[in-house]
Structure formats: C-alpha cells, structure tokens
Design a binder for these strands. Structure first.
Length: 331
DNA sequence: AAGCCGTGGGG
DNA sequence: TCCCCAAGGCT
C-alpha cells in the first residue's frame, strides 16, 4: 500500500465515518456531548463506561436505567454499602467493576465535592478508571479532545489503515501514535470522531463477519484492498470450564440471590440427602428460596475440588466481594 | 507484563 | 453444540 493511498484515506475517513455515524449511530441514552444531546449527566456517562467494560451494550441498557434511577448522583451511591452496588450489578459480569464504581463514587464525594472530575488525569486517579475510561469520560461527558482507544477503534484502525484483520494482542505505541494523528484538531469534531469510529467498529467493522457492504469507507480500507487477509495470529481464548472464575461465578450467583448469610459448609459440599433444587430431606435450606437452591445446585454440579472451592471462597473474601460472619457468607 | 477477573448472546 | 468475544483494569 502506498503512502499516497493512506494519506487520502486519512483525509476522507473523518467525513465519511461521521456522516455514517450521524445517520446510523444508535440513540443510546448515555450519548450526550454529541450533536443530539440527551442531557445525560457525567455521572450517567461514567456509569455507562464502567458497565461497558467487557459487557455488550444490549445487556447494559436495562442495568444502566436501573442504576440511574436508584443512584442519580455519586453521593447517592457512596451513601450505600458496596455490597448493594454488587447486588444491583446483577449478572453483568466482572462484579469487581461494581465495587470499583462504588469506590470511585466515594472518592468523588471525598475529593471532588461530589462532582465527576473533568480531566483525564483526575479521572484516572479513580478506582476502575484506566486509560480508556478516563479518555472516554473526558471526551463524551465533558467534550474534551482526547484520543479514545477501545477495542472497536483499534480494530477499525488496524483494518482501515494498517491492512490487518486484527490489532496486535496488546496496545502498541504505534497504535497510540496513529490514533493521535487521526484525531481531528477541532474539539467538537474530535468527540464525534471518537464516538463514530467506535460505533463503526461495534456495528459494521465487527470482529467476526464484518459487514463491509455497509461500510462507508470500504473503498478506502487497506484490509479490504489487500483481499481481507486472515489474522496473523489466533487470539488466545480464555479458558472457562474448571477455572476459578467459573467457581467464583457460581458462588457469587448464590450470594446475590441470598437475603441472609449462607453457611460456609453449603459451598464446600453438597448437603447429605440433598439431590438438587427440588430435592427432599434437605436440612434447613428453606430460608433461601428457590433461586438460592438453584444456584447452590449449579455450584455443586461443577464438582470442583474441595481445595478449589476453599481457594475461591478465600479469594472472594480477600477481594471484598463477599464477607463472612458466624452465620455464614453474604455479599 | 501475561494472566486473571463473569456472563450471556450470537455465529 | 461449542466457541468467540464484548466501550478494560489491575497486578
């Protein structure tokens, strides 16, 4: 690919992608500071960014609405125990994000007078706010010109400008430089650009089976021009079955359902004579309700080694995702 | 600095 | 069915 083509692409891409975005971008409730502002608060945008860390938009939507209604300001969330945040997090996954969001709310109240900080530097001091989230909040909540780089943007850049099917396994300095170069000088336009490229990656330039027929910059795409070559490596899929994460998840599912402490022994071995959620002869499991029994049964079906259960229980306690009293474990 | 940390929808 | 992976962060 010649540099001439690349330079042409870099000139044409902004308008084409932004026009596409204005016509095809989703009307998400946390989108504001963008042309059609819905009046979402910085806190609302911050909640969305936490929830969107590794969880798809479609699953975030209802949880975000619920959180906004329950905790409309950082102070509202900070006033409640972290366990409430974890429970309200529901099944979005990675519950430590709920914990960090709560901790961030506390920090905002204590250090920023209850207002979400408006600079990338201050934002990144908050728990759970890293390079991406700090840039995203600064850009989308405060209209700042920041280079926002998420997995979608990395993929679009890799294809459109580098001719690769996928970005490198880890974020490189070259990618950061490219993203910086591509960012429009104009502040307002840079905000739209960030959102537009992200949206293009989410809706069209997807990881699997990209919809190149719908792509506004297909004619400029280096990857397409190169004949859509295969990825140079095969992504390492994360193991799941038999892992601590699976066991932790199963334990968490029980704790989320339980309104009262769950005796530690119930996590370690299946109660004698208890055959499952509908089993008879169970000791005093009636306190929990069917949801608790169902998830307890699911945990035991994993048949995780005793040492693994112990390790996971200890890990959850250490992480503060669970707490223990004489009566048992709670969120 | 690889590996860990949940969950569920879609191909 | 199984496998992939999604607006990452932290250690």
């Amino acid at each position: 690919m010649s540099t001439e083509i690349t330079d042409t692409s870099r000139r044409l891409a902004p308008r084409l992608i932004e026009d596409w975005f204005l016509a095809n971008g989703r009307d998400l409730p946390w989108r504001t500071a963008l042309p059609h502002s819905s009046g979402c608060t910085p806190w609302g945008i911050m909640i969305s960014e936490f929830m969107l860390q590794q969880t798809p938009v479609i699953r975030v939507l209802p949880a975000w609405e619920a959180w906004m209604n329950r905790w409309p300001t950082p102070a509202d969330l900070a006033a409640e125990p972290a366990s409430e945040a974890v429970r309200a997090w529901g099944r979005l996954g990675y519950p430590r994000r709920a914990q960090r969001l709560h901790a961030a709310a506390v920090a905002i109240v204590e250090k920023h007078d209850g207002a979400v900080p408006d600079t990338r530097e201050a934002l990144q001091e908050l728990p759970g706010v890293g390079a991406y989230t700090s840039a995203a909040i600064a850009a989308f909540a405060f209209g700042r010109r920041e280079s926002v780089v998420d997995t979608n943007i990395r993929r679009v850049h890799a294809r459109l400008f580098s001719g690769k099917a996928l970005p490198a396994p880890s974020f490189t300095a070259a990618e950061a430089r490219l993203a910086e170069e591509l960012l429009p000088e104009d502040r307002a336009e840079s905000v739209t650009w960030n959102a537009a490229v992200m949206e293009l990656g989410a809706l069209v330039c997807t990881a699997r089976s990209p919809k190149c027929e719908e792509c506004p910059v297909a004619a400029q795409c280096a990857w397409l021009a190169a004949g859509s070559p295969e990825p140079e490596y095969t992504p390492r899929g994360q193991a799941w079955h038999g892992t601590d994460r699976q066991v932790r998840g199963a334990i968490l599912a029980v704790l989320r359902e339980a309104g009262t402490p769950v005796p530690r022994e119930l996590f370690l071995e299946r109660p004698d004579g208890w055959d499952g959620p509908a089993g008879t002869g169970s000791p005093d499991l009636s306190w929990g309700g069917s949801g608790v029994l169902h998830h307890l049964d699911a945990l035991h079906r994993l048949k995780a080694p005793a040492e693994q259960r112990e390790r996971c229980l200890a890990g959850l306690l250490k992480d503060g995702l669970a707490s223990e009293s004489d009566a048992g474990l709670t969120l």
